[in-house]
Design a protein around this nucleic acid. Structure first.
Lengths: 140, 140
DNA sequence: TATTGTTATACTCTATAACTATA
DNA sequence: TATAGTTATAGAGTATAACAATA
């Protein structure tokens, strides 16, 4: 079911010219502007060279920019552009609509109950809020 | 959270030398022995040439076999081998243990409540029981 | 001609390892 | 030497299209 919800979300945000990988990264940068590629790599649990490609995408789409840090010219401070901020706002709206669509079968009480149950599981499983495990390589 | 559960399941079944794609296909063949590659492709929503690779894997691992149909020699009837049947049994046990692990935070009443809520969503969303959308190409 | 399965090919995603610039 | 980022390369997964065997 997670896969279904993810696929539907992907459909929705594609209207913004954005793919799921973009969405997660964009949100991380929006939440904590100025962060470096290294910090993203660590939090996502992926290799730094992969962040290069992800950030390249976002930059090519004009949603973020790499700003040189004059104090330490080795790293970049990543920031949303005006366009990126706009897309981020759109995405929040899409996120709400998406949740509403997925939960259409449930009334408000049931949604609250579902959320509480899932949160209990997430906490017990030690999941980091806000980081989608989909970035990490799948074990095989 | 679906991604987390899927990753943990992948870990568990890797002990059997099986990956998630194998697991789904193996179960489909176990449930309906003798089915053709075409029928799998249709139900999974993937292209027939992909089923060739998936079935090749399973056959290489000795879990299934392609049997020629003497009536219509164009298609294969897919069947589990003895080893495949054994792995399928193991997988069922792993599935139960997995569910139990994921739901460790909930008592029996809560699990029943969660299951009911999720089933309501799945039904409303028109999800085919037993087919994981992960086989289908992700829209971009 | 139509259907089942296969092969050839190309493209995307991702990791590893070597490399550059800066500290 | 160590760190941030990049490039080159290789491998896996997957679709498209052409193909062979059978009907």
């Amino acid at each position: 079911m997670g896969a279904h919800a993810a696929a539907r979300f992907a459909e929705r945000i594609s209207e913004l010219g954005v793919i799921p990988a973009d969405a997660g990264l964009l949100r991380m940068i929006a939440t904590q502007p100025g962060r470096s590629q290294q910090s993203l790599a660590e939090e996502l649990g992926v290799v730094p060279s992969r962040v290069v490609a992800l950030v390249d995408n976002l930059e090519r789409k004009g949603l973020i920019e790499r700003r040189r840090n004059p104090q330490d010219r080795r790293n970049y401070a990543l920031h949303l552009t005006t366009e990126g901020t706009h897309v981020m706002t759109e995405m929040r709206g899409i996120g709400s609509a998406h949740e509403d669509d997925i939960c259409a079968a449930l009334d408000d009480t049931q949604r609250a109950r579902l959320a509480a149950l899932l949160e209990a599981i997430a906490a017990q499983q030690g999941l980091t809020p806000g980081v989608h495990p989909g970035y990490q390589q799948r074990p095989r």
